[in-house]
Amino acid sequence: MAIPISSDLLDGCVLALLKQEDYYGYALTRRVKEVLPISESTLYPVLRRLKKNQWLTTYDQPYQGRNRRYYQLTPAGNDQLRLIQQEWHQYRQAIDQLMGGEEA
């Protein structure tokens, strides 16, 4: 069974990855796909939305005669990440309490 991931949580995952390092589109998709069953075309609208909210910025870097667009976390994005993390933490505790965590 796959519980569908909400767009807020996906935002959080992307922001958290970008906190570690800057990613370009394909690498980011691959990285998320290692863990979550998203489709290849899921991240474009997510990145666009995050950029519009100014939670991330982009810059281009030449790579083999073309440009790669890298995504970088902004301070506002970092705040947003912390907010999502807090909410997720509370939510997870609530669910664990009702449903039992792994060790319960």
Partner: peptide, 14 residues
């Protein structure tokens, strides 16, 4: 052009 740039880069990287 934004969409196309993203996917053209994506396909090249892939």
């Amino acid at each position: 052009s934004e969409v196309l740039a993203y996917y053209s880069e994506y396909l090249q990287d892939a």
